[in-house]
Amino acid sequence: MRMIVKRIALTVGFIIAGLIVSAQSAKDLRINEVLIKNTLNYEDNYGERSAWIEIFNSAYNKVNIGGCYLTDDISNPTKYRIPKNDPGTSIPTRYFVIFWADGKTTHGTFHLNFVLDSTSRVVALFEQDGKTLIDSVSLPDSKANISYARKEDGTGTWQEMVKTTPEATNTTIDEVSPGQKFAKADPFGIGMAMVAMSVVFIALILLYIFFKQFGLFNVRKQKEKIEAIAALEGKTIVHEEISGEVFAAISTALYLHETEQHDYESAILTINRAAKNYSPWSSKIYGLRQTPQKESLNTKLKR
């Protein structure tokens, strides 16, 4: 038995480890935007302007780019190996990193050992084996401060962008709104109606299932409890259906009671327990100032 449990635990462990490894795949990385002639654009931490390459993590999990290769020459895929141990190389979900193509590797992990200029024709990203191509882009003749970027992050076609977006989404606010996109795909709103109604139903069906099952469990428990008490006292339980009028009468009486409209029978004395909820806010013990104590003459003499 213990062996079986161990095997199951090992299998589950391997599956989880496998999932984690596969989830960390660098295949989800995409070259997202490239700027070659940078004269007025984004500055690096040293206050210098140079060409930059933006990489986008299109996955819905973190991906570590450390160990992958960036190059401007397809025939030399291992031109720049991105250092592995820099925590900055771990790219969060749907996020971006910038590499500076300035040839100044002494400036840090994100500074490449090659320079992009007007003669550069390609940028490519290779996997950690230095052979498998992840993504590449052929660069057109570039104009100063105009980047070459995907229309949509990670997937779209490439275009020139006057409004560059380093370390930010390429889908700028000038683009079509989500509502317009939705209406374009669903001009009559039938899709929206069906999807939305289904979601409303699913949400409320889940609530229904939970409380139906919990209610049944609760009723069964209550029944068992009542039966146990009845059995102890030797009584028989009679199931009696209460009419709507009784409920209405009780509700009316409660309403009158709550709104204090019931006390016209002056002969009846009603005693209510006056419960004062304790709160440290109203407690004298926790008061900000101590109440001044009168010192008696004896106390003064004792001192």
Binding site: S177, A183, F188, M192, A193, A196, Y208, F211, G215
Partner: peptide
């Protein structure tokens, strides 16, 4: 009586009915 929850879901039909007609009347999706 949790099955009454489903009535609360069904009555939302009005929202999406009005959405469809509004689209046809030239209102933007928003």
């Amino acid at each position: 009586n949790p099955k009454l929850l489903l009535i609360g879901a069904a009555a939302q039909l009005g929202i999406f009915g009005a959405y469809m007609v509004s689209l046809q009347l030239g209102f933007s999706p928003e």
